[in-house]
Amino acid sequence: MSSAYENVVEVRNLCKYFPIKAGLFGRVVGHVHAVENVSFSIKRGTTMGLVGESGCGKTTIGKTLLNLTPKTSGEVIFNGDTHLDMLKGKSLRDFRPKIQIIFQDPYSSLSPRLPVGEIIGEAVREHNLVPESEFDAYISRIMKACGLFDYQKDRYPHEFSGGQRQRICIARAIALNPDFIVCDEPVSALDVSIQAQIINLLEDLQKQFNLTYLFISHDLSVVQHISDTVGVMYLGNMVEYADKAEIFANPLHPYTQALFSAIPVPDPTVKMNRIILEGSIPSPANPPSGCKFHTRCRKCQAVCSQKAPRTMDMGNGHTVACHIYDPESGYENA
């Protein structure tokens, strides 16, 4: 990748709908609006954290970015001009290793029939990234960096614990020497000490190679540590986006506020002051009218169920999609 462009990736009005099929013949009876009209960009060498309710479309964003699932509409542009879905043949093969994903569920993304050394090295070999004579040493080095050992090379995935499998996935991605990595819950299966080790590793690699990350996680303290910017999603929409320091100091969207208030603290004597979200998460196949959050929002007013909020720029790149902050919405601020 040439580094002429400041933004490694730019996402414009990305939509992804999954068809819902029913009956014997798989008739399409509706669509899951997994990602709806999402736009953001990530600067080279930075990390964007992506948080939000389970099922709100984070993994789907990651997968559509890499064209692992085709998008429904919108644009994903790498380096200012590369559209992954238009690349073919050799140019696609050359570009592929540059963007990697670390999957959320290590169990289903590792081939059970290959020993670990092969899993990590398979694509390295395929793309001829290191000469055959250095191959073994290279794989050993990568494994060591990810907290794995040489003697584990010939073992199979089922012989590893959950956290060890996650490290295999990380090693596999890093081995390809990528520019951009989508990290989908990369450390949530790891104990905090190894978690710290992997985060430090990701940060070191970032500094060293000017890597760019999209970091999806439910652990907000980790997101706060590693990110430069943070996007908050709810039911397919990006409801708030800002610099890390700004969003943690001054969360604006009622969902973000509820989310941040629910972070558990490692101290049994602390009593939490949670904003409990009422009701269950609406189905993305049949999202609520107006603001999708209105069924659970503490600050909901009549207008909220009638029209969808616009995304407002509150200055310094802090954007929020909520009627409270839109003077023309008709929301009555007390």
Binding site: G147, S193, A196
Partner: peptide
Amino acid sequence: LMQSKPVINKMVDRLYSIPGSVPN
């Protein structure tokens, strides 16, 4: 272990991680 955990709103430059690794 307690030291390794990032805590919300307590920013550190680099996370503490226990040196070395488990025995084989």
